[in-house]
Simulated assay, not measured.
Amino acid sequence: MTTEHTVDFEPAERLAKDHARVRREFWAKIKKVAARLPFAEDLLAAYYCAFDRQTPRHVQASLLGALAYFILPFDVIPDVMPLLGFTDDAAVLATVIRLVSNHIRSDHRDAARAALQRLKDGVTPATE
């Protein structure tokens, strides 16, 4: 029987490994591109929700998948293409956020706004 906090199709070790990779590579990429992303706040809110210990595992897995797609160097549409480069990232993120939107709380959004402001000010967010 599956509970809300388990992921039958993904071993826990794999999810932990993905957690570490997303956490490690996310901030490096967001620092480079935050100013160009119209969906940066949603991306950051998804990040904070994915790493919130209160977020159910299946939600974490979905968000980590979307975040991993954002940080991975291969893409359906390469991120270096002006205007079009992040459209596929935005589509994946928007789809996942719509599916798990009731788990992205106001404190995740507040943290996202604060981190985005720090990035715009040239300060590295403390949550790296």
Rank of each mutant, 00 (worst) to 15 (best):
M1I: 11
T3W: 02
T3A: 14
T3D: 07
H5Q: 08
H5P: 02
T6Q: 06
V7S: 11
D8S: 12
F9I: 13
E10W: 08
A12N: 07
E13T: 09
R14N: 07
R14K: 05
A16D: 08
K17A: 11
H19P: 00
H19L: 02
A20W: 00
R23T: 08
R24P: 01
R24E: 14
R24A: 13
R24C: 09
E25D: 13
E25K: 02
F26E: 01
W27C: 00
A28M: 00
K29M: 09
I30G: 01
I30A: 01
A35D: 13
A35I: 09
A35W: 03
A40F: 02
A40E: 06
E41V: 11
L43F: 05
A45D: 06
A46M: 06
A50L: 02
D52M: 08
D52Q: 04
R53A: 15
Q54T: 14
T55H: 06
R57F: 13
R57N: 15
V59C: 09
Q60D: 04
A61F: 04
A61P: 00
S62E: 14
L63P: 04
G65I: 03
A66W: 01
L67Y: 09
A68E: 10
Y69C: 13
L72A: 14
L72V: 10
F74V: 14
F74G: 10
D75G: 08
D75M: 04
D75R: 03
V76G: 06
V76L: 07
P78G: 04
D79K: 04
M81H: 03
L83P: 01
L84D: 13
F86Y: 15
F86V: 15
F86H: 15
T87A: 12
D88K: 03
D89K: 06
D89Q: 07
A90K: 08
A91Q: 02
A91F: 04
V92D: 10
A94R: 07
A94M: 06
V96H: 03
I97G: 09
I97Q: 09
V100S: 14
S101E: 13
S101P: 01
S101L: 08
S101R: 07
I104Q: 11
R105K: 14
R105S: 15
S106P: 01
H108W: 04
H108C: 13
R109H: 13
R109K: 14
D110I: 12
A111P: 03
A112N: 09
R113T: 15
L116W: 00
Q117D: 15
R118P: 02
R118Y: 05
L119R: 01
K120A: 14
K120E: 11
D121V: 06
T124V: 08
P125Q: 03
P125F: 05
T127A: 10
E128Q: 04
